[in-house]
């Protein structure tokens, strides 16, 4: 086999690609790297939009579910890693270069381009699983059933002043899945037939969440917490805390 390669008449396709190849100058390589770095930082913001499913899911809903929270943390970690790598590539070390010396210029260029190219490729690839994890987190949050309603009350005995009878402080919380954005829960705490707490709590991010406190409540009396929303009625009797506390109103 001859070790001589003979030239052929170039096709128009050859000439077009050769012309395009002339645009890959050392300067455009650096411009390409800088543009990639800037784009990466901008695109990571999209991970947040995917996480919130374009506004359909509140971040609190994503974090409320342990599975979606795990995916969200993975997405944010990877997106953060991509940002970090992209930012590091924008750091420039002061290095002397003699622009008139082509050898020195080439060495400077190789130093500049070399690791940045690998780092930016890594960061770009990192964004793909970040987007996927964000999409999974949003999907899990969208499809997961809402957390069941819950009523919690803690009674703390407070010694009476000047030898008086002790009292108790009631602290508690109510969490009920909202029927809609305009759902409201009516919450009352009754001690010995007397209403010590009455409040209304509106829905926020798909949940009605309220906390309350009542001080100076007489001890050794029956305490009942009632929370009623459009879809749920919860009744917690501190003297008889067993059994199902909350019932769906539609099921009654």
């Amino acid at each position: 086999m001859s070790d001589v390669g003979y030239g052929e008449e170039p096709t128009q396709d050859d000439l077009d690609w050769a012309e395009y190849g002339k645009t890959f100058t050392p300067a455009t390589q650096i411009e390409l790297l800088n543009a990639t770095s800037e784009k990466l930082v901008g695109r990571t913001a999209l991970v947040g939009i995917v996480l919130a499913a374009g506004g359909l899911v509140a971040v609190s809903s994503v974090l409320a579910n342990s599975l979606s929270r795990g995916w969200a943390i993975a997405a944010v970690t990877m997106a953060g890693g991509a940002i970090l790598v992209a930012l590091v590539t924008q750091v420039r070390w002061p290095r002397k270069v003699r622009p008139g010396d082509i050898h020195d210029l080439k060495r400077w260029h190789a130093d500049y381009v070399g690791w940045r190219r690998t780092a930016l490729a890594f960061a770009s690839f990192l964004l793909v699983p970040a987007f996927l994890a964000a999409a999974v987190a949003a999907g899990v949050a969208l499809t997961a059933p809402p957390a069941p309603p819950a009523v919690n009350v803690t009674a703390t005995t407070v010694p009476g002043a000047d030898g008086g009878a002790p009292t108790q402080t009631l602290t508690g919380s109510v969490t009920i899945p909202a029927q809609g954005s305009d759902d409201v829960a009516e919450i009352t705490v009754v001690a010995n037939g007397e209403t010590v707490v009455r409040m209304r709590q509106a829905a926020s991010a798909g949940t009605i969440a309220a906390s309350f406190e009542a001080k100076g409540v007489q001890t050794d009396v029956g305490i009942t917490v009632t929370a009623t929303s459009a879809a749920w009625k919860c009744v917690l009797n501190l003297a008889r805390p067993r059994g199902e506390v909350c019932r769906a109103l539609a099921a009654e």
């Binding site: 070790d3 001589v4 390669g5 003979y6 030239g7």
Partner: peptide, 9 residues
């Protein structure tokens, strides 16, 4: 490079 020499016909 293979081939190592390049020529015009």
């Amino acid at each position: 490079l293979t081939p190592s020499t390049f020529a015009c016909r």
